[in-house]
Simulated scan of single mutants.
Amino acid sequence: MLRKLVGVALVLALVTQFLVVAPRARADQDSYQRCLATTKPKIVPNGDLGSITLTAAQQCSHHLKESPDEKVNPQNGSGKGPVAPGAPKKKKPTREEIIKENKARKARNAALAKGFEEKTEGFRSCVKRNATDGDTESRRVRSTCGTGPSAPDFEEMTDVPGVPRQGQPDLGLPPETIAYVASTQLQLPKTSVQLGPDPEWNRWDKAFVGHPYWLWIDSSTESMTSKQSVGPITVTLTASLDSVTYRVKGEEPVTCDGPGTPYRRISSNIGKSSPDCGFRFTKAGPRSIEATANWVIQWSVNGQQGSLQMPQTGTRAVEVRELHSVNVDPPG
C-alpha cells in the first residue's frame, strides 16, 4: 500500500513538472531572450561606485524565475532581484577608489557650478536689456529670456573610511560657490524707480530741467532672512539693502543710502529737495533713469560665513523739458 502511495505521489510530481513548471520556465526563458534582443547596455548611478554599466542580461533578469539562494538587484548587483546570467557581484570600493571617485565628482560639480554661474549672469543681462520701466516679468522678458537656469544637480561626496564627516554632506565645492547658487533662489523685491513730484501730476506729463526731484524705490522690505537648499546642504541667507545707485546718461550718478524717502504731495514739499536722495536734470530730452539696488547677502554654510553682492536693476523712462519765462508787457 505504501509503495502504491509513493508511486502515485511521484507520478503527480512528474505531471506537475511537465504540465506547469516546465512550460512556465520555457515561457520565462522565451521572454528573457526577446528582452535580450531589444535591450542595449546603459549606465546607471550607484551610490558607492559613482556609476556602473548594466548589461542587457542584467536589465532583462526580471523575466527569469527568482532563486532564493542567489538574489541580485538589476540596478546595482545587490539586494533582492532575480539572478541575471553573468551579473557581477557587488564589490565594496577601497579607500583609494573612493578618493579617486570623489575627485572626479568634485571636478564634475565644479564644471556644473561654473556653467550655472555663466547662464545666470547671461539671464540677468538679458532681463536688463529687455525689461521696460523695470518690469522684469513682462511677456517680452519671459519670451526672450525664459525663466532663468535651474540649480545644478550636484553629486554628493562619499564618506572616506577613517575620515569623520564635518557638518552637512560634502559637495566638494567652496562655500562661496554654494552660497552663490543658494542666493539665486532668493526672491528679492523688484526695483521700481519712483520720481517725485511725479511728472504725471502736471498737465504736460513732463519732468523739467533744474527742478529738485526726489528719488526712491518701492521696496516692501529692506532686510530678509531665509534658508535655501543646494542639494543636501542647507544655506542660511540674510539679504540687506545697502544703497541704491541712480544713473541717467549724460548726468552724474547718484548713490543714496537705503531705499530713499518717498515724496508726499503736500504744499510744504513744493520746490524742496529730498532729505536723502535728490536729483536735478541738466539736459532736456527723453531720459531713462536706471536704479541699481545694491543688496548685500550674508551667508552661512557649515559654520563658515561670508557675504556677496546681488544688485537688482530697474528703469523708468522720463521726458524732460526746459521751462522758459516770457516777459509780457502789461496792458495799456
Rank of each mutant, 00 (worst) to 15 (best):
Q187D: 15
Q187E: 14
Q187A: 14
L188D: 02
L188C: 02
T191E: 07
S192G: 11
S192N: 14
V193R: 07
V193F: 01
Q194N: 10
Q194T: 06
P197R: 06
P197V: 04
P197Q: 07
P199C: 04
E200P: 02
W201K: 15
W201S: 15
W201H: 12
N202C: 04
N202L: 05
N202M: 07
N202E: 04
R203S: 15
R203E: 15
W204R: 12
D205S: 10
K206F: 07
A207E: 06
F208Q: 11
F208K: 10
V209M: 07
V209S: 07
V209W: 07
G210T: 01
H211M: 14
H211E: 14
H211D: 15
H211R: 15
P212T: 05
P212L: 02
P212V: 06
Y213S: 03
Y213F: 00
W214H: 03
L215H: 02
L215G: 07
L215Q: 01
D218F: 03
D218S: 13
D218Q: 12
S219E: 09
S219A: 11
S220L: 10
T221N: 13
E222M: 09
E222Q: 13
E222D: 12
S223V: 04
M224K: 14
K227R: 13
K227L: 10
K227D: 13
K227T: 14
Q228W: 04
Q228T: 10
S229K: 08
S229A: 10
V230S: 02
V230W: 00
V230D: 00
V230I: 03
P232F: 06
P232N: 03
I233L: 00
I233R: 00
T234N: 13
T236Y: 03
L237I: 08
L237G: 02
T238D: 10
T238Q: 03
T238V: 03
T238W: 03
A239S: 09
A239M: 06
A239R: 04
L241E: 01
L241S: 01
L241Y: 00
L241M: 05
D242V: 08
D242H: 09
D242W: 08
